[in-house]
Computed example of a mutant assay.
Amino acid sequence: MTGAKGGLLPGVKGAFGSVEYELDREATRLRRAGDMDGAIAVLRRRKAIFDWQWQDDKLAKYLQRAGCFEEAMAEIQWLLDHSQARARRALGHQPVSLQQSQHAAYCARLHASAALICKREGRADLQAQHRRLAERYGAIWQRLEPIARADAKEACLRRQEEIAEMRRRLRADRSRSDRAA
């Protein structure tokens, strides 16, 4: 299904053609035009729409480019502070190992972004700290990822078996009611 502007999945957060997607494009257009304040304002509106699902580091990078280093780092910290709860809410139906694996990968990316922001700002001390944290979370992800993949596969097989059992019961119930009629 396509939206009025030809985008796929209208109303789905972040989907092509959605309000969130259009706001992201608008922020990029404003940045390219040199209007960093406008781009930041648009990204803040986008963050408000996403609410707890917000996980984009673009706002932090734009804040740093606009000379707001402390605000940029506060945005990174906000993303880190909310990352565990977001992983649980978004992946709560998945095995814990998968939730932890995805969380570790996300934290590695966030700390890598923070290191880049610090590098651009000339803060070698903080850059090194975030680079170490990115590497540490990356190592955690590398250890968890094979476990998470195996657990997810096992959970999928269990769900398939549960569905097959429900279908067998449903057929048996229909068969009994057909005979009773």
Score class of each variant (00 low, 15 high):
R131Q: 11
C118I: 03
A15D: 00
A48E: 06
Q129P: 00
D24Y: 14
E26K: 15
L144M: 07
K58R: 15
L43S: 02
G14Q: 03
A60P: 06
E71D: 14
E154D: 10
V19T: 13
Y137F: 15
R168I: 00
A112P: 03
R136T: 11
S101E: 03
E161M: 13
Q127K: 13
G38N: 04
K58Q: 07
Q129S: 07
A112T: 01
R86N: 03
L59E: 00
A164R: 15
E71M: 10
L80M: 04
S18L: 04
R123P: 01
Y21W: 15
F50G: 00
D24C: 08
R31N: 01
A4N: 09
Q127T: 00
R131A: 12
K61R: 10
L80I: 05
L126C: 02
Y106P: 05
Q55M: 04
L110V: 06
M166W: 08
A155Q: 14
F69V: 06
R171A: 03
A124T: 04
G34F: 03
H82E: 02
I163F: 10
E75D: 09
E135R: 14
A39S: 09
V96S: 07
Q102N: 01
A66N: 14
R45H: 03
R123M: 05
S113Q: 08
E26P: 09
R44M: 10
K61I: 01
T28K: 15
K153V: 00
A33W: 05
A104V: 04
E161T: 07
E22A: 11
E145T: 06
D151Y: 10
D35C: 07
L59H: 02
Y62W: 14
W78E: 12
D37T: 08
I163Q: 09
D125G: 07
C68Y: 11
D151Q: 13
Q53R: 15
I140N: 11
L59A: 04
D125I: 06
W52S: 06
K153Q: 09
R65W: 06
L170T: 02
I140W: 12
R25N: 01
L91Q: 13
F16S: 08
R176Y: 03
W141P: 01
R136S: 09
L59D: 00
D35G: 05
G92R: 12
G34V: 07
W54N: 13
L79T: 01
T2C: 08
V19Q: 13
L157R: 14
G38V: 03
G17M: 11
K47S: 02
A155G: 08
M73H: 09
C118V: 06
G7D: 00
I76C: 12
V12R: 15
A87L: 08
G17W: 08
H93E: 04
L80W: 03
